[in-house]
């Protein structure tokens, strides 16, 4: 028996919004430690890794490890039927081929349930090596989303250059060149507005705007985003999900042809 309950459906809606542009379907691996999802996008350029800890749920029970392959378009249709403030409960029997998603209004006067067929997905799990990153940048998630959106107008690619002075995002194309520099913030009143750079050595990497923009669909989940970079390895873009877990996106760099 698997049962996981969250106080607000809005969190689940935001999580789905953060992955459904990259993935058509995905397997949710459930165990007593929580729910994990790891999947590559269709073109195998990026990898999404979602971790939701069992202690972040209002109620969590998972008697046996369970892998639930879900069509994310179908899940989106179901979540559309929830009000943001509704409680949401996911339930499945052991070895079931369906999952039930139930919404309850705060006053419990409206209860709806949706049974969704599960899929057998033949997904490859990849082992992600530990990396000592050259640069780790923490910055406001909204600012990162804005920069990715703005630079995508100028080029398919953005160059991220990180030094101890700051981080520079550049794009160059037919229109010309765009550069956005962010300096590390001195003292800030609000932690969520800070730009913090931890640098071992400077790094310059090139990434496809299209994927960065897809990752920024996670912006509503978190006030800050963390970018971890190292020469010739994938960028890690991480959004914390408060009290519940995190979503990480890995993006392979563009390399000299």
């Amino acid at each position: 028996m698997f049962e996981a309950r969250l106080g607000q459906a809005t969190i689940l809606k935001k999580i789905l919004d953060a992955i459904k542009d990259l993935l058509n379907e995905a397997t949710f691996d459930c165990s007593d430690s929580g729910i994990q999802l790891q999947a590559m996008d269709n073109s195998h350029v990026s990898l999404v890794s979602l971790t939701l800890r069992s202690d972040g749920f209002d109620k969590f029970r998972c008697d046996r490890n369970l892998s639930m392959g879900m069509n994310l378009g179908s899940m989106a249709k179901i979540l559309k039927c929830a009000n943001n403030e509704d409680n949401v409960t996911m339930k499945a029997q052991d070895n079931a081929d369906t999952v039930t998603i139930m919404f309850e209004s705060a006053n419990q006067e409206k209860v709806s349930d949706y049974e969704m067929k599960l899929m057998n997905l033949d997904q490859e799990h990849l082992g992600i090596p530990e990396t000592d990153f050259s640069c780790v940048v923490r910055m406001p998630a909204m600012e990162f989303a804005r920069i990715c959106r703005d630079l995508a107008q100028f080029s398919e690619s953005v160059v991220i250059c990180c030094t101890k002075e700051g981080v520079k995002f550049s794009a160059s194309g037919d229109v010309g060149t765009a550069n956005i520099k962010l300096a590390q913030t001195g003292s800030v009143d609000k932690e969520e507005e800070a730009v913090i750079i931890e640098m071992q050595e400077p790094v310059t990497l090139t990434f496809a705007c299209r994927y960065l923009n897809a990752f920024t669909k996670a912006t509503p989940l978190s006030t800050q985003v963390q970018l971890s970079m190292c020469a010739d390895v994938p960028l890690v873009v991480e959004y914390a999900i408060k009290d519940l877990g995190h979503i990480r996106y890995y993006l392979a760099p563009k390399i000299e042809d």
Binding site: G127, P234, L251, K254
Partner: peptide, 14 residues
């Protein structure tokens, strides 16, 4: 000119 690398060239299959 740059070309897009695939993610599987960085991570091993489990």
């Amino acid at each position: 000119k740059t070309k897009q690398a695939g993610i599987m060239s960085f991570f091993s299959k489990k």
